[in-house]
């Protein structure tokens, strides 16, 4: 077991973990705690989408809907049927996964723009359903008074406690994702992303792999949605629109495709950016649009990836330069 843990975490990772544990204690600012809680929730979402987008190479612009399904499942179960939040947490992920399976079979036959549009359409349908089935979801105003997340009598009722809860869940899911990526399914999904034809010729069941990854990534979104409902204690349709889907995809792109740590860092970065932009009132969204475009033009492979390559290039360039100088001497 110890050996296993040692293999899983290098020293560097332990440093990150320590920093995450201590950060809110060193900096006891409730606003920062709240931001980190939000960033953690988005990071769970982005991690899930990263499996689908980065590893399986498929596009989804409907992940906000799975997030919403998770949030509404928790909201309805806890407020209407007073189910414990811990049970609702798992039920949310299960609901999101089942719905993802049902729509995944037909939708995932599509590729590229058409897949993007179909998932986007699914998101819009979800929003309309939520707004219109008022008896179940409370319509436009949503559901209020969702209880705090509680486990065995311990209630996560401050931002600090929620911070540890969410980053704990994120850590667990990250371990799961890391193992999944290295498993047979993970390697198969990488093959599918590279070339579906080549993958199917070596015996990978392409459709099955795609649906499987889609379901897992929807379950991640379901977990995130459940936590979001508990933290915000409300669920209303505005929170689960197209703009959230765009934001999550941006997190994965900025973090770098095919990378599990990237989306988490990008989630923190973009949450912080949105918070700063929020200070500019009505100018915030136009600026946000411009920043999105600039990020895509200058860092289409993610800030981290590009940075790594650039650093390596720089180092090798200096190395070559040194060699050249030696040769000249």
């Amino acid at each position: 077991m110890v050996e296993r843990i040692r293999r899983e975490f290098r020293k560097r990772d332990l440093c990150y973990l320590g920093a995450l544990l201590l950060l809110p204690l060193i900096w006891p600012d409730p606003h920062l705690h709240h931001l980190l809680v939000l960033a953690g929730i988005y990071a769970i979402l982005a991690l899930g989408l990263s499996l689908f987008l980065g590893y399986a190479g498929q596009i989804s612009l409907g992940h906000a809907a799975f997030f919403g399904i998770g949030a509404y499942t928790t909201a309805i179960l806890t407020t209407r049927y007073s189910v414990p939040t811990f049970v609702a947490f798992w039920a949310s992920a299960a609901t999101a996964a089942v719905i993802a399976y049902l729509i995944g079979r037909p939708i995932l036959k599509l590729k590229g723009y058409f897949l993007a549009l179909a998932t986007l359409g699914f998101g819009e349908i979800f929003l309309v359903m939520v707004r219109e089935s008022r008896s179940l979801t409370g319509g436009v105003s949503g559901i209020f008074g969702i209880p705090w997340f509680s486990l065995a009598g311990f209630s996560f009722d401050t931002y600090l406690k929620q911070y540890y809860l969410i980053w704990g869940v994120l850590l667990g899911l990250l371990l799961f994702a890391k193992n999944l990526v290295r498993s047979k399914v993970g390697r198969a999904s990488l093959a599918v992303a590279t070339s579906e034809d080549a993958a199917s010729t070596v015996g990978i069941k392409v459709a099955q792999v795609k649906v499987g990854v889609f379901v897992v990534s929807a379950a991640f979104a379901g977990f995130a949605g459940s936590l979001f409902a508990c933290v915000m204690s409300t669920a209303s349709p505005e929170a689960f629109g197209l703009s959230l889907s765009i934001l999550i995809v941006m997190m994965v792109i900025v973090g770098g495709m095919g990378n599990l740590y990237g989306p988490i860092v990008a989630a923190i970065f973009l949450t912080w950016l949105l918070d700063i932009l929020g200070g500019y009132q009505e100018y915030s969204l136009p600026i946000y649009g411009v920043i999105l475009i600039l990020l895509l033009i200058f860092f289409p492979e993610g800030i981290g990836t590009r940075l790594g390559i650039r650093l390596m290039y720089l180092i090798s360039y200096r190395g070559r330069k040194k060699k050249r100088e030696e040769v000249q001497l």
């Binding site: 765009i246 941006m250 792109i253 969204l285 649009g289 411009v290 999105l292 475009i293 033009i297």
Partner: peptide
């Protein structure tokens, strides 16, 4: 994504 950003 860039055209979606332009749309925003």
């Amino acid at each position: 994504m860039a055209t979606l950003g332009a749309s925003i």
